[in-house]
């Protein structure tokens, strides 16, 4: 049950964050680039959240990455 609720909330939170970022990520990517991006993201998230898999921590990580993107890009 919690997995489904977390997935729904996570989807809307990510949708909201990407919309606020005012970018269109993935619009010009090929399928191979798409795979690489997700693979790299999947690896880096392990060290980013560490042993803290809570919603609070993941939301914080997404916000910080969004802010970094806003600052750097």
């Amino acid at each position: 049950m919690y997995t489904i609720i977390h997935a729904i909330l996570g989807y809307f939170f990510l949708l909201f964050t990407v919309r606020v970022l005012s970018r269109r990520p993935g619009g010009q990517m090929t399928l191979f680039e798409f795979v690489i991006v997700f693979l790299i993201g999947g690896v880096i998230i392990l060290s980013t959240v560490g042993d803290d898999r809570s919603v609070t921590n993941c939301v914080g990580a997404v916000i910080v990455i969004g802010l970094m993107h806003g600052l750097v890009s």
């Binding site: 606020v20 609070t56 914080g60 910080v64 806003g70």
Partner: peptide, 23 residues
Amino acid sequence: FEKLVWAAFICFVLLDLAGVFGR
């Protein structure tokens, strides 16, 4: 609205760094 959300995000990160949400 975007500016308000960014301000809220920055507040969240600062509070998180301080440990208001734990750790």
